[in-house]
Amino acid sequence: MRLLPVFTLSLAGILVTGCGAIEEVTGAAQKTQQCIEAAGIVTETVSKITSVASDPAAVEKALNDGATKLTTLADDAANTSLKEAADGVAAKLDGYNVQDANDAVDTLQKVATDSIAWVDTLTKACA
């Protein structure tokens, strides 16, 4: 009869340890998913801007939408580094001011070039 309490305590310890391991795996999976999403938001934003480059209002909207998505992801980020990186990229996207067709073309060129560095920054934040 004395073995039963010891066995129960041992089993409880194994279950608690197992739950901690499951939480670690779940957290790592969530972080990986968020990192993939962050890079995808950048590439999606560049794609949208490219497709509407002749419409300054649509370019501005695509930039704002991308910034909003990154800010939302940053708010939900399971990783502080990813949060900071996503907030930084969102601020850059939000910082463009597209008033006319020339601004739209200039912004497209700048965003297309900078997006490579942004994806790299987001990816490194997830490492």
Rank of each mutant, 00 (worst) to 15 (best):
A101K: 15
S47R: 07
K92L: 09
G95D: 03
N102L: 13
L82W: 00
T50I: 06
D87C: 12
T80V: 12
D65T: 04
K48L: 10
L82K: 11
A78D: 10
S54P: 05
T72H: 04
S54H: 07
D100T: 14
V89R: 00
A78V: 14
A57M: 03
D103F: 05
D103H: 04
A101N: 08
T72G: 07
A78W: 05
A58V: 11
K69E: 13
D87H: 11
A104C: 07
E60A: 14
L63F: 09
A78T: 14
Q99S: 15
A57I: 02
K92G: 05
K61A: 14
A74M: 06
V98L: 06
V52L: 00
A62N: 05
G66T: 01
T68C: 01
A67F: 00
S47P: 11
T68H: 14
L70D: 03
P56V: 08
T71S: 09
D65R: 09
L82S: 06
S54F: 09
A58Y: 11
A91Q: 15
A67C: 10
D94K: 14
Q99R: 03
G66Y: 04
L70G: 12
V98T: 05
K69T: 07
D94I: 00
V59E: 12
A57F: 01
A101W: 02
D87T: 11
P56Y: 09
D65A: 08
I49C: 04
L93N: 02
K92P: 11
A53F: 14
A90S: 07
D87E: 15
A77K: 08
A53H: 15
K48I: 05
Y96E: 03
E84M: 08
N102H: 08
V52G: 02
T80Q: 12
L82D: 03
N97G: 13
A58I: 04
Y96H: 08
A67I: 00
S47H: 10
L73T: 00
S51I: 05
G66H: 08
G95E: 01
G88S: 08
D65E: 14
A62W: 07
A53G: 03
A53E: 15
G66F: 07
V89P: 01
D103G: 02
A91L: 11
L73R: 01
N102T: 12
Q99L: 09
T68E: 14
D94M: 05
D100S: 07
Y96S: 03
A62M: 05
T68G: 04
N102E: 15
G66A: 10
S51Y: 08
D94S: 08
A85I: 08
A86S: 11
